[in-house]
Design a protein around this nucleic acid. Structure first.
Length: 497
RNA sequence: GAGCCGUUAGCUCAGUCGGUAGAGCAACUGCCUUUUAAGCAGUGGGUCGCUGGUUCGAUUCCAGCACGGCUCACCA
């Protein structure tokens, strides 16, 4: 804490002490509240002349000698309070001991000022909670055309993220994003539930991690005396539920990947996964179009939205691009019938870089990025990945070199990944053992062999379509957030030393 | 991990071609009983991110470090 903070804080501590001397409890238990702020404003026609009581924070104070105007802000918005010495007598002096940010309970008669603002003429008030810190004072002015000009916005990203409660307190847009995200999650659950899916929670602490290629967080359970991993995907457990006899399951939860943070990546990210028996990845295409287009309609009233100043058309059906033909067209190669050297040259020609250790399939993956993903803005399904890139997917009946899979790209980032799920226990074992080999050869992100999962498959898993959808990124698109941190309530920053 | 940029009052920002800093809002004092970025008058508040170097003198120049932002790499 700096000295300056202390001095502002000291002033408030002194006021708190004075209140105590006067016998005022600055943190009382009881609140009397009949209306929320915006209910008073919107209900003016019925409430004119009626006594109401509101509670909230003092967000502005405008003194006029023997009268004071103040804004009282609660979760709904703000209502103006009018304190008059004539009405309040000695209590009027207590206003001196209130500060911006204090929680206050006030009751009185609803009226409209000369300038037409709905206001409560206060007859009584009491402090509900004294604040010791001065909140940043952000002021706004509404122009005639409805645009809002903001002064001294609390804008430093570091300060905003480190004290997110202050950010959300003084920046309505920050708070709205978080609330919109919650609405989005609720809408998704409704969407899934309406279609007969049930949400089942699967383990976050896992003895083995799988279902994706990523480095995990490791932890230790004292009583079991064993290392455990924080899950990197829900996939393998949700598929066990298909074995168990559930036909439509989903889960919304956090996955943990021990990786760097950037604009679209965060180590604990929220994923929606669903699995539907007797469906294929084609069904997942339809359903993801319906889900996301429906959310756009719900949030924006249209599927033609804007993201970061650029039009984004979410109207289904969405474009599709097949991996192999697209790469072949762009490079003039046949990716299944050319040398690794050709692939490397093609990558360099497209402005990419390669690493010595990369396998053929990693090279193809890189080409995929360069050729397909970078141009994807409006939604695009990238389908038909080489089988070696997708150990948990079923091979395409028409071409065993590729799988029944899509990745969905929107606004330049991957939003979903889906396959017709591999349910052949022997083929699955083979694919996972190939992963384990790659792992032994140094690929830290290759998957491991989960014997219990393979055993489950041997009991029989129905054919199924499955998908994982990145909900942080979906929230970014729906709330026009430039950075993943904006859709997280409390993003992590490096500790200040 | 790399490159570029940033860090000055509670908040938003100026500024010092090197002589220990300013504004608005917030705070404090006074005036003001329909204001709303209320107004008017006045006051206080800063080891200029940290540590070193150069210098008579560093917040300013240089280096290192910390934290952050953007871009790239990695990745969903």
């Amino acid at each position: 804490m700096t000295d300056e903070t202390k001095s502002l804080r000291d002033v408030r501590l002194e006021k708190l002490a004075k209140l105590r001397e006067l016998g005022v409890d600055s943190y009382p238990v009881e609140t009397k509240r009949t209306h929320r702020a915006v209910e008073v404003v919107d209900g003016y026609d019925e409430l004119e002349g009626v006594d109401v009581a509101a509670a909230g924070r003092l967000s502005a104070v405008r003194g006029h000698g023997k009268a004071v105007f103040a804004d009282l802000t609660d979760e709904t918005g703000k209502v103006q309070l009018y304190f008059k010495k004539d009405n309040l007598g000695d209590d009027f002096e207590l206003l001196e001991l209130l500060d911006l940010g204090d929680f206050v309970n006030a009751g009185g008669t609803v009226f409209k000022t000369k300038t037409g603002e709905v206001t409560i003429e206060v007859k009584w008030f009491k402090i509900l909670a004294k604040g010791l810190r001065t909140p940043p004072v952000v002021k706004t002015r509404e122009a005639g055309d409805g645009t809002v000009e903001t002064f001294d916005e609390f804008a430093d990203p570091e300060k905003r993220y480190r004290r997110r409660y202050v950010d959300m307190l003084v920046n309505p847009a920050s708070k709205k994003r978080i609330a919109d995200r919650a609405r989005m999650t609720a809408a998704i659950r409704r969407f899934m539930d309406e279609r007969g899916f049930i949400e089942i929670e699967t383990p976050i602490l896992q003895p083995l991690y799988g279902g994706a290629n990523a480095r995990p967080f490791t932890t230790y359970h004292n009583e079991l005396e064993t290392d455990l991993y924080l899950r990197i995907a829900d996939e393998l457990y949700l598929k066990r539920l298909l074995v168990a006899g559930f036909e439509k399951v989903y889960e919304i939860g956090k996955d943990f990947r021990n990786e760097a943070i950037d604009r679209t990546h965060y180590p604990e990210h929220t994923l929606l996964e669903w699995y539907e028996a007797y469906a294929t990845y084609e069904d997942c295409i339809t359903m993801s179009e319906e889900l996301i287009a429906g959310l756009a309609e719900e949030f924006h009233g249209t599927t033609k939205i804007e993201y970061q100043g650029r039009p984004l058309d979410l109207t289904p059906p969405w474009r599709r691009a097949e991996v192999v033909p697209t790469i072949n067209d762009a490079t003039g190669l046949d990716v299944f019938d050319c040398s690794e050297d050709d692939l490397r040259k093609a990558i360099e020609k497209l402005g990419g870089e390669t690493q010595e250790s990369w396998t053929r399939y990693k090279l193809i993956d890189e080409l995929l990025d360069l050729v397909v993903k970078d141009e994807a803005w409006d939604p695009m399904f990238v389908t038909g990945h080489p089988a070696e890139l997708s150990p948990l997917a079923k091979r395409s009946p028409g071409d065993p070199r590729i799988v029944e899979r899509f990745e969905l790209f929107i606004a330049g980032t991957e939003l979903a990944n889906s396959f017709s799920e591999q349910n052949d226990p022997l083929a699955q074992r083979e694919a996972l053992e190939a992963q384990a080999e790659a792992r032994a050869a140094g690929d830290e992100e290759a998957q491991t062999v989960d014997e219990d999962f393979l055993t489950a498959l041997e009991y029989g898993m129905p054919p199924a379509g499955g998908i994982g959808v990145g909900l942080d990124r979906l929230a970014m698109i729906l709330t026009d957030a430039p950075n993943i941190r904006e859709v997280l309530a409390f993003p992590q920053l490096r500790e200040k030393k």
